[in-house]
Simulated assay, not measured.
Amino acid sequence: MKRHQMLMAGLVLVLTAMSQAFAAGGDFKEGTDYEVLKTPITADTDKPFLIEYLWLGCPHCQALNPYMLQYEKDHPNVEIVRKPGIGPKRWVLDAHIFFALYETGNGKLFAPLMDFYHNLETKERRLPDQNDINGFLKSHNIDQKRFNEAMTSFETMNNLQRTLKEEQSINLTAVPTVVVAGKYKLLAPAEGEGDAIKRYFELIDYLLKKG
């Protein structure tokens, strides 16, 4: 009887340990869910941080954005650093727009700008042209001349070059791509809903704790 009790107690301990491991992200695997970067990426923050590489016109980035915004709201101790993916010619233009938004002090309008891209694509099946962007600027009381100057400013050009080098160093091939703590590049797909999206953010939490 004692032997049976000891076996049962041992089984309980094993199951408890397994449960804790899975709860802590024990089912996440390097090489499958994430990749450890050879050269970490730094960010200008003292907080735990995520870097999200995206394109304003990317439907997958647009779909992920509400979840990222909610995560940001629920985790004020974690900073999300957003950077534009730099690829084809159109992406480069939108990267200029992205950096100009922040350089003019209007970074808080990132989400409305992405929604603007999404709504135009949904309604008219196209990306915004210069007239559309001017209309967005006007609707948010942003000085058009100052914004246009910021698009080609020295700071914007430096940001573009620095971001491109980062993306080359991590072999960025698709957006959205999230890098956790500057060390871990997520390989899991940033799409879906319910359990799929829940697992995606559990992976982020796991890697933040991993540090």
Score class of each variant (00 low, 15 high):
M1N: 11
M6G: 00
M8S: 10
L11P: 06
L13H: 03
L15A: 14
T16G: 15
M18N: 08
A21N: 12
F22Y: 14
A24I: 09
G25L: 05
G26V: 10
G26P: 09
G31V: 06
T32E: 12
T32L: 11
T32A: 13
D33Q: 03
D33F: 06
K38Y: 05
K38S: 15
T39R: 13
P40M: 02
P48W: 03
E52K: 09
L54W: 04
L56T: 01
C58L: 10
P59Y: 07
A63S: 13
L64I: 06
N65W: 01
N65F: 03
P66T: 05
L69S: 13
Y71E: 09
D74F: 03
H75E: 10
H75V: 03
V78R: 00
E79D: 14
I80K: 06
V81I: 13
R82V: 03
G85H: 01
G85P: 06
G87S: 14
R90S: 15
D94V: 00
F99I: 04
L101T: 04
T104R: 00
G107I: 07
G107W: 08
G107H: 11
L109G: 07
L109V: 01
F110Y: 15
F110T: 10
A111P: 08
A111M: 01
P112M: 03
L113N: 04
L113M: 14
D115S: 11
H118T: 11
N119V: 04
T122D: 04
E124Y: 09
R125A: 11
R125P: 03
R125Y: 14
L127I: 06
L127C: 05
D129I: 01
I133M: 05
N134V: 04
G135I: 02
L137W: 05
L137G: 07
K138Y: 10
K138D: 15
I142L: 10
I142Q: 13
F147T: 09
N148G: 07
E149A: 10
T152H: 14
S153C: 11
F154S: 02
F154K: 01
T156C: 05
N158K: 12
N159F: 05
R162K: 15
L164N: 06
E166Y: 04
E167I: 00
Q168H: 10
S169M: 13
S169G: 07
N171E: 11
A174S: 15
A174R: 11
P176I: 09
T177R: 02
V178Q: 01
A181V: 12
G182P: 10
Y184I: 08
A190Y: 08
E191F: 06
G192V: 00
D195A: 12
A196M: 11
I197R: 09
F201T: 11
L203C: 08
L203E: 11
L203R: 01
L207H: 07
